[in-house]
């Protein structure tokens, strides 16, 4: 990847990343009027964005090439400028060149693309597992590793609730999936009714929930915070109204949360307020 970056306009990618970073001032949710990816929160999304940017530079170069050629031809060979057309209708050399050149470009992008694909898809040694079930129409989370934690039904907040709590409507839920940061989490995804797709854009995760089949994927969140996603496979009337909310907390807070049977007690809230992790405090307040 680094090697390819170096040979293929490293500066262009750097400029692009700067542009992207500017747009990505919010974390874990779409940015207002955003034109780029949400800020990556996991190593997979980071690599995904790198591969995308490499491909993006290549496709921009292709568009610029074709458009400038077109403009040149349209001006140079307009009827007035060139009243007598040539009769050329083949040139074997140039036909070979424009067949081979795209092949080379494709080879350049296919290597990092394959690396990303396998990195994303082959699960590393994960440290914990969460199970996600798509219902019509909400998400149901459970923690097979922790017997004390009941299943969590995650329903979206309606518009007034969301306003009262100052959280984004159509993204926020009444019960997020809680995971520790810096931990490789295996996600098992399935459905009991229609198909759904469990997606968190800033994680680079999108996995279909298919009845009769358990799909698996993984993520490792870098920083504490709240990360939002939305159902990404058409599933009926409430398709737009079954958001995904993931709350990433510190390992200590997560342990406390598990010890409390899956709820943030006042103690945790106080604790986290002392640690000035405001996100957890809001969550505790909501409980």
């Amino acid at each position: 990847m680094r090697f390819l970056k170096a040979i293929l306009g490293g500066s262009a990618i750097a400029g692009l990343s700067a542009f992207a970073a500017h747009a990505q001032d919010v974390v874990g949710r779409p940015s207002e009027g955003g034109m780029w990816f949400q800020k990556p929160a996991t190593p997979v999304m980071e690599q995904l964005q790198d591969v995308h940017n490499l491909v993006f530079v290549i496709i921009c170069a292709i568009v610029v090439l074709v458009v400038s050629l077109m403009l040149y031809i349209m001006i140079r060979f307009r009827e007035k400028a060139n009243p007598v057309p040539s009769k050329t209708s083949h040139n074997t050399m140039i036909e070979i060149v424009w067949t081979i050149a795209p092949v080379v470009l494709l080879l350049v992008m296919v290597v990092p693309s394959m690396q990303l694909l396998y990195y994303q898809d082959r699960l590393p040694e994960t440290e914990m597992t969460v199970k996600v079930v798509g219902n019509t129409w909400n998400w149901q989370y459970s923690y097979p590793d922790y017997e004390d934690i009941d299943e969590i039904i995650s329903n979206p907040l309606d518009e007034t609730q969301a306003q009262e709590e100052g959280v984004p409507y159509l993204l926020a839920t009444d019960a997020p999936l809680v995971v520790p940061v810096g931990t490789k989490v295996k996600v098992l995804v399935t459905s009991v009714s229609n198909m759904h797709s469990w997606a968190v854009p800033s994680f680079g995760v999108k996995m279909d929930a298919v009845p009769g089949l358990v799909n698996e994927t993984w993520f490792e969140v870098y920083e504490e915070g709240t990360y939002y996603g939305q159902c990404s496979e058409i599933c009926g009337i409430r398709h737009y109204f079954m958001p995904v909310e993931v709350r990433a907390v510190s390992q200590a807070d997560f342990n406390q949360w598990v010890a409390n049977g899956g709820s943030f007690t006042e103690a945790v809230a106080d604790n986290s307020e002392n640690q000035t992790t405001s996100g957890v405090a809001t969550l505790a307040a909501r409980d």
Binding site: W36, Q38, P201, Q230, S232, I234
Partner: peptide, 12 residues
Amino acid sequence: MNGMPRRYVDYP
């Protein structure tokens, strides 16, 4: 790219 899914009647 910002993450808006298809087939949504309402959006954030």
